[in-house]
Structure formats: C-alpha cells, structure tokens
Amino acid sequence: MASQGTKRSYEQMETDGERQNATEIRASVGKMIDGIGRFYIQMCTELKLSDYEGRLIQNSLTIERMVLSAFDERRNKYLEEHPSAGKDPKKTGGPIYKRVDRKWMRELVLYDKEEIRRIWRQANNGDDATAGLTHMMIWHSNLNDTTYQRTRALVRTGMDPRMCSLMQGSTLPRRSGAAGAAVKGVGTMVMELIRMIKRGINDRNFWRGENGRKTRSAYERMCNILKGKFQTAAQRAMMDQVRESRNPGNAEIEDLIFLARSALILRGSVAHKSCLPACVYGPAVASGYDFEKEGYSLVGIDPFKLLQNSQVYSLIRPNENPAHKSQLVWMACNSAAFEDLRVLSFIRGTKVSPRGKLSTRGVQIASNENMDAMESSTLELRSRYWAIRTRSGGNTNQQRASAGQISVQPAFSVQRNLPFDKPTIMAAFTGNTEGRTSDMRAEIIRMMEGAKPEEMSFQGRGVFELSDERAANPIVPSFDMSNEGSYFFGDNAEEYDN
C-alpha cells in the first residue's frame, strides 16, 4: 500500500510504541512475548500442572481467558453494579484439565481477579502490559475465525453469508486497541457500523446529549479505520460520505453494504499476525530463551520457528480426527482463516481442507461434555516452508469459486491468482447506482469489472525454506488448481455463540 510509510507498523501498534527502528520493534515485541511466557509459567505453578498438562491447549485457553477477564475493567465495573446470582464479580476462573488415573478430569478453578492481575503485572515488570493482553485477544479471535462461520451475524446486519472472507476479527472485544483495529476485516468494521446506525434509528437519543457526542466521535473513528483499509480513492470518498452524514440511517447502511461487497474484489488491507497460545510461549521462556534479547516478529519467520520446536497437546472428542484438529489450530496460529487453501497447503506441506470436510468441533470443551471418553493427542503445528504475512489485500483475480465463501483475504505475501467468483459478486451490483453516491458507485463498479483474471497478485513473492531466515531465496510455489480455494466452501461450520 502506498501510504505504508505514514502508518505505524503493526509491531508498533502491538507494543504501543512511538516510531521505533526494526531492532527496537523486535525487542519490544519480544518483551511482550516474554511477559506472556513468564505469566503462563507462574500460572502453571499456581495450578500445580504437570509439564504435559501445561502444554494442553484447553488449559492455555482457560488461563488466557482468566487474565483477560481480570483486566476487563468495563465488564468488571458492570458486574459490580449489576450483581447477578451466583456470579462473584471479583473472581474469575474456568475449567482446568488434569490427568488422573490414566483419565482426563475437569476441575473448575476460581481465583481472585486481583490475584491474577498481581501475577500478570509481576510477570511483566510491574506494568499492565496491555500489548500482551491484546495479543491474547487476537489469538482467540484468530481461533474463532478458523472455527466458526459468522453466517447468522452477517444475515442479521443485512449482509450476504458468502462475504465471510471479510469477517476477520469479528469476535475481537471493543477494547483491543490499535492492534485489534489493524486485524479487523472490512466486513467486521461494516458490521460494527451498521449495528451502531441501527441503534440510532431505533433509539432517538442515541446521537443526542453528552453521551451522543461520545457516540458520534466513536462512529467517526470507526469510519476512519474502515476508510484506511480501502485502497481505492472511490471507496475512500464513499467512506467520507458515510462519516460526514448528519443523521446516519438506511442510506448509510446501503452504502456500507455496497462497500463491503466491493471489497470482495477491490480488497481492503487487513493486517495478519501470528499470535500463538500462551502454552507455546511459556515452555520456550522456561527453556531459557530470551525473546527480548533475541527479538521477535509476528509477521516473519519467528512464529514458524517457534511452532517448529513446540509440543502442544489437545483434548480430542471420541469421533474427532486429531489431524483435522491440528489443521484448525495451525490455521489459527498463522492467522489464515480466509487465505486461499492452495497457498496454505503449499506452505504447510500437507493438504489443507475446507472447514466442512474437517471432523472436528471447536477447541474448547463445553462444561456439560462427558470427560470419560476424552483422549488427548499432539497437535501437528509444523510447516514445510515459511512466508511473510501481508497486510495488503493483493490485486484481484477471477477463479472458480464456491457456493460458500466467494473470495479470499490473503494472509501471506505469496504470488498467486486470487480466487473470487466474479459473476456471483457482480450480480449483486445491478441497477442500484442512484442517489448521492452514484458517481462513486459507478466508478467502483467500473474498477471491479476491469479486474483481470490473468493478473498475478504479489508478483514474484515466494515462500522460503525454514533454514532461509533472511528470506534470501524465494520459492514461487505451484498450486494444484483442481483443489478448492475457499475454506468455508459450501460450508456447515458451527455458528459462533458468545
């Protein structure tokens, strides 16, 4: 993207840094990872977990959730003011799984939030270390993106479920800051804005008074975040219109849905970061690795190297396929839920299948599930090659597409044709070009129609051997075009429920 120079890199967003050079960025990201790792080690000690239990991804998720809940100030305040039966607002906890007599047992633990905050700050040299908290939120978000298709949420806001490739980060909490905003897809931002506008339509006082002023500035800020994701002048001009509207209503909703559809071809720039579970960072720190000293990046080879040398386990339900569970977590670790499966298959070195073909449910185990038949197995999170994460949407291309997802959002900077089903997408653009945004709409449609099938995206960008740390010898991959490109292809993934 041309304006790259004016933006802070995501590592800076990730670490609240002012302008830093590459070495400083690597050190501050490393410091953040160190903090998460030290916190995780301490929690495993508190909970008396064995090494194996500490490497269980379900335990990692519970521990991450506990610290996120302990620092969720708004919710904590709300819980104190609106006490609900049987919930102690000062405590947080969740299921911890232990191996007892050759069987997995679930144990519900409860801790004072104050105590968890103390352990977290102690692991982070006394700081609140917001960057580390956001990092864990993005890992949870990436896992949700890989596990669930947001059909219901899309339909509720009037969008087409086939636009799911635009929904990265749709389950990120509001408090995820600049680093969170960077990884949100165009569809996620559109959905947040539509929800806001709908509230304004239904509630006369939404934009009024002292609160209304705050609401208005939040609305304009979200519009600017979305505008910054678009790469064409016409899309940005249309966002200006939406932002400046005196009284946002149905016309703005129409414009936003139009823009979301246009992003299936004229893709937005959305950041991709490899955020790993805390149970990967903990053992690495415990083994003596100093992330701050060595430096770390979320968008280069580092996460690949770390996963190459990590042992992570997962509980497996009786009829689940461990290899499929591994694929789910591998995609989440690489922030690749909406990437082209052919690119992923090449990088991973084994075939990556669409969601609907995987015999696996989510990673988390519900409290009512029976533990008797639970097994555990090693997650295979290694890769054959590594590639640089991208934040450009890439230019655009036609490809055989599917009944489910009709476009992709690249996660890796790797040369390819970008699949999208042009006739299906263009069919949504018939007729409606009147109104105050008509010239911009016409211009956007013209650009979409001009998108050429034979153009290559990320020209000359390749993948790298894991021994090639400096990215000196790019390998331009070859793809098996007979395979499906979309992950949520004609899909039956479970729906995400809060």
Rank of each mutant, 00 (worst) to 15 (best):
S262Q: 12
S377N: 13
N417S: 09
E484T: 15
F464Q: 03
P419D: 00
N432T: 14
G288K: 10
M331I: 14
S170C: 05
E294H: 13
R55Q: 12
R355L: 14
R156M: 05
G185T: 03
T146F: 02
M481T: 10
Q235N: 01
V186S: 02
T147H: 11
E115S: 12
P318A: 12
P453N: 13
F429D: 01
S377Y: 05
R19M: 04
S413K: 09
F420Y: 15
L381Q: 14
L193H: 03
V285Q: 04
M66H: 05
F429V: 01
R416C: 12
F71W: 15
N224C: 06
S28I: 00
S217G: 02
F412E: 00
A153V: 11
G132Y: 07
L172N: 04
I194T: 11
D497Y: 15
G37M: 07
G17C: 15
R436P: 05
Y219E: 05
T157K: 02
N21I: 05
E73Y: 13
N250Y: 07
M32R: 05
K87G: 02
H140I: 09
R243H: 10
F338T: 12
G30F: 10
V190P: 01
A182K: 02
P474N: 02
Q399T: 06
I225W: 08
Q415G: 10
A337G: 13
L306Y: 07
D240S: 13
S262F: 09
Y10G: 01
S28C: 12
G17T: 09
A70P: 00
S438C: 01
A373W: 10
I41Y: 09
M163L: 12
L133N: 00
I365H: 09
L47T: 11
P95L: 03
G185D: 11
R175W: 08
C275V: 11
L166A: 03
Y496L: 03
D480R: 15
L193Y: 00
L328R: 06
E244F: 01
E454I: 13
L49N: 07
I116F: 04
R195E: 10
N432Y: 13
M163T: 15
I265S: 06
P453H: 15
R382C: 11
V67A: 14
I445H: 02
I365C: 06
E454W: 04
N76Q: 13
Q415M: 13
R102N: 01
P161V: 12
L154A: 00
E375I: 05
T360P: 07
T147W: 06
E192Q: 08
K98W: 06
K229S: 07
D51P: 11
S69W: 10
K87S: 06
A366D: 10
G485H: 08
S335Q: 11
S402M: 03
A428G: 04
S482H: 12
N319Q: 15
V285C: 15
S478P: 09
E454R: 00
N142H: 11
Q235C: 15
Q459R: 15
R391K: 15
R199H: 11
Y496I: 10
V190S: 14
I225H: 10
E81C: 13
V186K: 08
Y97I: 07
E64D: 12
R384T: 02
I57H: 02
S9D: 00
R389A: 13
T171Y: 00
V463C: 14
T6Y: 00
N125D: 09
K198S: 13
Q241A: 04
R216N: 07
L344F: 10
I63K: 06
C275Q: 05
S377H: 15
Q311G: 03
N309R: 15
I96N: 03
P477S: 01
A411I: 00
F338V: 09
V155T: 12
G490C: 02
M238N: 08
A70K: 02
Q405I: 00
S367P: 00
T45G: 05
N473Q: 15
P277N: 08
I425V: 15
M238H: 11
E254T: 10
N59T: 12
G485P: 00
K91I: 00
P83D: 00
M32C: 06
R199V: 11
S50T: 14
P248A: 14
N483P: 00
R162H: 05
I225P: 02
G228Q: 04
A427M: 15
G450P: 09
R221N: 11
C275Y: 06
T433M: 13
S392L: 02
G295H: 07
N498Q: 07
W120T: 02
R102T: 05
L108W: 02
L256M: 15
R75Y: 09
S165I: 02
Y148G: 05
A284V: 13
Q58E: 10
A323C: 11
C44E: 11
D480Y: 13
V329G: 08
I138W: 07
I253S: 06
K227I: 11
T6H: 02
A401M: 00
F429S: 01
G180Q: 07
N59G: 14
R216I: 04
M238D: 03
S310L: 02
G180V: 05
C275E: 07
I253Q: 14
L276S: 12
S262E: 08
T45Q: 05
S141V: 10
D88Q: 05
R75A: 04
Q4E: 11
A442S: 15
K229V: 04
G158A: 13
K77L: 12
E18K: 03
G394K: 03
I388F: 01
V299F: 10
I57T: 05
V242C: 14
E220R: 08
F412W: 03
R106Q: 08
E292N: 03
G200S: 08
S176V: 04
F489Y: 15
A70M: 02
A181G: 14
P322N: 11
L418Q: 04
M196T: 10
L143S: 11
Q20G: 00
Y97H: 09
Y78T: 02
L154W: 05
F39V: 06
K357W: 04
A22R: 15
S335I: 06
M331T: 07
G180S: 07
Y219S: 09
K273Q: 05
E380Y: 07
I33H: 00
R99M: 06
I197P: 01
K227M: 10
N492H: 06
L133H: 02
D421Y: 09
R416V: 01
D302R: 07
A286Q: 12
R261P: 05
S353F: 12
E469F: 00
I406Y: 09
S245V: 01
V408A: 14
W207S: 03
T134E: 03
L143E: 06
D160E: 14
E369G: 11
Q42R: 09
A336T: 14
T378P: 08
L79E: 05
I33M: 14
V476L: 13
A428I: 06
P419K: 10
R38A: 12
Q58Y: 11
L193D: 00
A260H: 10
R65L: 03
A401W: 00
M456K: 14
Y313W: 11
V414A: 12
K452L: 14
P173K: 13
T151I: 07
E294V: 13
G37D: 08
D491G: 09
M440N: 06
E80T: 13
N473I: 11
A251I: 13
R384V: 07
E252Q: 10
I445L: 07
D16N: 09
V155D: 10
A263M: 11
G485W: 14
R236C: 04
S176T: 10
G362P: 04
R156N: 02
V329D: 08
E494L: 03
I57Q: 08
A428W: 00
R26S: 14
E107R: 04
G349K: 07
V280S: 03
L381N: 13
V476E: 12
A471N: 02
A131R: 02
M374N: 08
R213D: 09
N368W: 00
R175V: 05
D439G: 01
H272M: 05
S50R: 09
I253M: 14
R384Y: 04
N321A: 10
D255M: 08
A85N: 14
R195P: 08
V414T: 15
T433C: 13
F420H: 15
A278T: 07
N370L: 12
S9I: 12
M238R: 02
N319E: 02
L307D: 03
R361I: 09
K184Q: 09
G268K: 03
M167N: 07
S287K: 10
F346N: 06
N250Q: 10
Y40H: 15
I119D: 07
G5W: 12
R208D: 00
Y40M: 06
R243D: 08
H324N: 11
G158F: 06
S383N: 13
R55S: 07
S438Q: 06
P322T: 15
W139M: 09
A218N: 02
T62A: 13
C333W: 06
P318L: 12
V408F: 07
M374H: 08
E46T: 13
A182H: 15
S287L: 05
M426K: 03
N76T: 05
A251T: 10
I257N: 09
G462D: 01
V190T: 14
T92Y: 02
R156D: 02
V29Y: 01
E46L: 08
T130L: 12
